[in-house]
């Protein structure tokens, strides 16, 4: 399957815009993008600056540029809590990593059923699934806590991970349903004619063709699980089980002494894994279709 040839063809047949006009458009696009990027970058720059500056300057200084630079907050922050951040990172990786696997598997299965299979009461179950999205979690928190406590799961990672393997987040099911329904129906019909089981259709056709949405689900799951603090706050009781986000929150207590320098240093550092995860998986998002051999 050639990818480049049709693209070249497009350029030739469009014909009308001169190279000069093309370049102007391109420059305008870049200027727009760079301008917008600065807006987007400002918070990170501020965060970085705050992590390098003296503590008592963080809230009083108007300038983004620190009066003096120091890596002190990073060392202080990393070892500042009783348990080092190394443990928190490991915990966060385990929870987020397992969540990605669970969500992608379980939600894609459920979505395949809703999007491609026919069964009784499908609309009813789909509506129930959507309903779980609509109730604010604040009011199910305590019954859920009681449930997990009866299961003996409090103070373990299980309440944070097991629901992901049981497709508890309807967001991802709904997301995948929308994408699966966009895939040409003839594919499964042809496969069905050839005697393919639904499982083979799911595994051999739908999953390989859905890399963009699976990558999207992986990215969101990883980042949102990484950023979540409320679940870990409620279910993890010992500091050596803490996640990075929960560790970050223990830097600040609004009523007493807080290590803001350490907070900002560790906040900046906590962005690194999710940023790298994003960079890596967005390649899948973009290349997905091309590598599966479908028409591009």
């Amino acid at each position: 399957m050639t990818i480049n040839a049709p693209a070249k063809l497009t350029v030739v047949t469009e014909g009308m815009p001169s190279p000069l006009r093309r370049r102007t458009t391109s420059i305008i696009v870049h200027v727009l993008l760079i301008g917008a990027s600065i807006l987007m970058l400002y918070p990170l720059l501020w965060l970085l600056a705050a992590s390098f500056r003296p503590e008592n300057e963080i809230f009083t200084s108007a300038s983004i540029w620190p009066s003096s630079w120091s890596l002190d907050a990073y060392f202080r922050g990393w070892n500042g809590l009783r348990t080092g951040f190394g443990t928190f990172y490991l915990n966060s990786f385990i929870i987020s990593g397992l969540s990605v696997i669970g969500n992608v598997l379980a939600c894609s299965m459920a979505a395949f059923a809703f999007a491609r299979l026919n069964f009784k009461y499908k609309n009813f179950w789909f509506a129930m699934m959507l309903m779980t999205l609509m109730l604010p979690y604040q009011v199910t928190l305590i019954p859920q806590y009681v449930l997990f406590r009866q299961l003996g799961w409090v103070n373990t990672f299980l309440p944070l991970v097991v629901p992901k393997f049981l497709a508890a987040d309807g967001f991802f099911i709904f997301l995948m349903v929308q994408f699966f329904r966009g895939l040409p129906k003839e594919l499964d019909e042809a496969a069905q004619m050839d005697g393919c089981s639904p499982w083979r259709i799911y595994w051999r056709i739908i999953i390989p063709l859905s890399m963009p949405v699976l990558a999207t689900a992986a990215i969101f799951t990883f980042i949102w699980t990484w950023d979540d603090f409320f679940g870990p706050l409620i279910y993890l009781g010992e500091m050596r089980q803490y996640t990075v986000m929960l560790g970050l929150r223990t830097f600040t207590d609004s009523t007493g002494e807080s290590d803001y320098g350490g907070l900002f240093a560790m906040s900046a550092l906590s962005l690194v894994p999710i940023f790298l995860f994003f960079l890596f998986f967005q390649r899948l998002l973009i290349e997905g279709i091309a590598t599966t051999g479908m028409k591009r």
Partner: peptide, 9 residues
């Protein structure tokens, strides 16, 4: 098949 795929859910 539909219900089996929905089993985890």
């Amino acid at each position: 098949p539909g219900y089996l795929f929905l089993l985890p859910w």
